[in-house]
């Protein structure tokens, strides 16, 4: 009998009991209303302002999972030994890791889904207030696509959190490492651009260049998952790019989870 799905469900259920989730909903409603109102201050790009803010709330709300829930549900599991409850059943450690990852993914999908609905509601509300011609560029499919890819980014980050929680013994350290991964993941592409460009007066040692290039391949390239601006401007998101990013996300997650499982299998859980 497969134990992955029960573990995912119990993780999801446990995550749902965190009140911070309801805080996110309140925060999102507040922010979306704010977005609709503030966009009126601008001359032309009303739709863009609304979507900028709302889609950022989608991403930020989703980030709650890796930064808060994942660390609590994984490191906390090991620290407080609730993991015994799960491993006392015939669940292998690999199943534990994958089940936890899927459970966290379900939580992220729920948050992103709800916040995307809020975004669409905010846009609809905006069309009721402001003249029609500001919304000629509105593309619901781009909004949905952007949210889907934002979810992929969160899943990718989640996989690294799973790894950090497996290799560290404290949730504080896991949070710090997650934060570092996120920041590096968001900026590494820009850094590579920077060191690759032959800027006059900037001399970068070959070692540094190499290190940064390697970083690009090791850390998740989270910036690649950011389609908020395209969606905000109503540009079509190319199918090729989306599929490439999706395949990248899945491959990366699988690789990281394999490392996590290998390490976790060796680890004592005293």
């Amino acid at each position: 009998m497969n134990t992955i799905w029960p573990i995912a469900l119990i993780t999801f259920k446990e995550g749902l009991r965190y009140r911070v989730l309801y805080g996110v909903v309140v925060f999102a409603v507040f922010f979306n209303v704010f977005a609709v109102l503030i966009s009126g201050f601008f001359m032309r790009d009303i739709l863009k302002i609304t979507l900028d803010l709302c889609l950022s709330v989608v991403s930020a709300g989703g980030l709650l999972v890796p930064f808060f829930l994942a660390v609590n549900l994984l490191s906390g599991d090991i620290e407080q030994r609730t993991i015994y409850t799960i491993l006392a059943r015939p669940a292998s450690r690999a199943n534990y890791i994958i089940g936890k990852f899927i459970g966290l993914g379900l939580l992220a999908a729920m948050i992103v889904g709800v916040l995307t609905c809020f975004t669409l509601l905010a846009v609809w509300g905006s069309t009721q207030i402001y003249p029609e011609h500001f919304f000629t560029r509105l593309s619901v499919s781009s909004i949905l696509m952007s949210s889907f890819i934002a979810l992929l980014a969160i899943l990718t980050l989640n996989s690294t959190v799973v790894l950090w929680c497996c290799v560290t013994t404290s949730s504080f350290l896991a949070t710090l490492l997650t934060l570092a991964t996120y920041v590096v993941g968001q900026t590494v592409e820009d850094l590579v651009h920077f060191v690759s460009a032959q800027l006059p007066g900037v001399d970068i040692s070959p070692t540094v260049k190499k290190v940064i290039h390697v970083t690009l391949y090791i850390f998740p390239n989270l910036a690649a998952f950011d389609f908020k601006q395209q969606a905000a401007h109503g540009l079509a998101i190319s199918f090729q790019e989306v599929s490439l990013v999706t395949v990248y996300g899945f491959a990366y997650v699988t690789a990281i989870l394999i490392i996590a499982v290998l390490y976790f299998n060796k680890r004592d859980l005293p």
């Binding site: 134990t3 119990i10 030994r81 609730t82 993991i83 015994y84 409850t85 059943r89 669940a91």
Partner: peptide
């Protein structure tokens, strides 16, 4: 386990349902 390691936010039924599912 020594110090009962149950999920603090879940009910005993939730735990038993999990065991049943596995």
């Amino acid at each position: 386990p020594e110090n009962p390691c149950l999920y603090r936010n879940l009910s005993v039924t939730d735990h038993l349902v999990f065991a049943a599912r596995t």
